[in-house]
């Protein structure tokens, strides 16, 4: 049975739920799974990981204890663990952290890497990913001694498969590195991570001014959604670049994507076309987005969104009562 390492990601010490899709993908192909945890939370996430069929959790640490975030040291530690446990295939998320770590690991091992995979057939060493701004789907075959895949967050539906996991400590030596992490700086804003969110509400040119994003935030808060923006809105200075969805922003795959006042350029679709359900609210019935969505509403977003917030509050309230 092929050993596959799953690089587990956390956000504020909580396991990201998008990890479960990556685990599901590898588990359903009959691989022996090793969850790799670097931040000292291996024991704390045992309960959650074993719900998804993880039997081995590798608690990677140095002599001094858990590893502080450092992209080079973390990449080296993963390589050391792969080497020690004889793991030749590694799967992770194509998140900001994955984009830092997976290519460093691949470069270290001189191994092939496919990022932003929407599917992987591990025994065929083949991955599917979009190319050319989402206009094509490429099947990429990899050859080598190690294989690394970054999975698009939310691209694979998670399926539980409970079992009992053991935590295996693994101590690695950490060398001094040329690259130094000086600080992790939190910008003011936003709450839920776009790539993690099940629901995203995005605003475009139709938002008209920065203050108007407040109605999207209000609606998002009711249902735990993230708020995104189109390039037009970001370029106009109405929203920060960290909220941008599309070619030069985040690539997202939520269950529901609600586009408000977004025309739906090719570049925007490149960032959200793998969403489960796309809903468009636009005053222009001819807008490109109405031609490639699941549901569209030809109406003023400033009328629809506040009503949606109010009705959602009622629904969420009822859910909590029952």
């Amino acid at each position: 049975m092929e050993k596959v390492g799953i690089l587990i990601e956390f956000k504020d010490d909580k396991i990201k739920k998008t990890n479960y899709g990556v685990i599901t993908l590898a588990r359903q192909q009959g691989c022996e799974l090793y969850a790799l945890v670097l931040n000292g939370n291996a024991a704390a996430c045992k309960e959650q990981l074993q719900q998804y069929g993880i039997k081995k959790i590798i608690d990677i640490a140095s002599k001094e204890g858990p590893l502080q975030w450092h992209p080079v040291k973390w990449a080296r530690a993963v390589v050391a663990a792969m080497d020690h446990f004889g793991i030749n295939t590694l799967c992770g998320l194509t998140s900001a952290q994955g984009k830092e770590l997976l290519p460093r690991i691949a470069a270290d091992l001189d191994a092939p890497l496919v990022m932003d995979c929407t599917d992987v057939v591990l025994n065929e060493r083949a991955a599917k990913k979009s190319q050319f701004s989402g206009k094509t789907v490429a099947t990429i075959k990899v050859n080598g001694n190690h294989f690394i895949f970054g999975i698009r967050p939310n691209a694979i539906e998670k399926q539980p498969d409970p079992c009992e996991a053991e935590v295996i400590p693994f101590q690695t030596t950490v060398d001094k590195e040329a690259l130094v992490v000086k600080e992790i700086k939190l910008q003011t804003h936003t709450g839920i991570d776009l790539t993690e969110a099940d629901i995203i509400i995005s605003g475009g040119r139709g938002m008209q001014k920065p203050e108007n994003f407040a109605i999207l935030f209000e609606c998002a808060q009711v249902i735990g959604a993230a708020v995104g923006a189109s390039r037009a809105a970001v370029d106009a200075g109405w929203a920060p670049h960290s909220m941008q969805v599309g070619q030069t922003g985040a690539t997202v795959s939520p269950k529901v994507y609600i586009a408000c006042g977004i025309s739906g350029s090719v570049q925007h679709f490149a960032g959200m076309k793998t969403a489960g359900l796309i809903v468009a609210v636009n005053t222009d019935p001819e807008a490109n987005i109405t031609k490639n969505c699941d549901y569209y509403i030809v109406a003023d977003l400033f009328e629809i969104v506040p009503i949606l917030s109010r009705q959602l509050k009622l629904v969420v309230g009822e859910n909590q009562l029952t």
Binding site: L179, V181, D193, S242
Partner: peptide, 16 residues
């Protein structure tokens, strides 16, 4: 000296 954009408005400051 660089600032790298991570997710959700988090930046890491690196020196190389």
């Amino acid at each position: 000296f660089v600032e790298c954009e991570m997710e959700a408005g988090v930046r890491q400051l690196l020196e190389m």
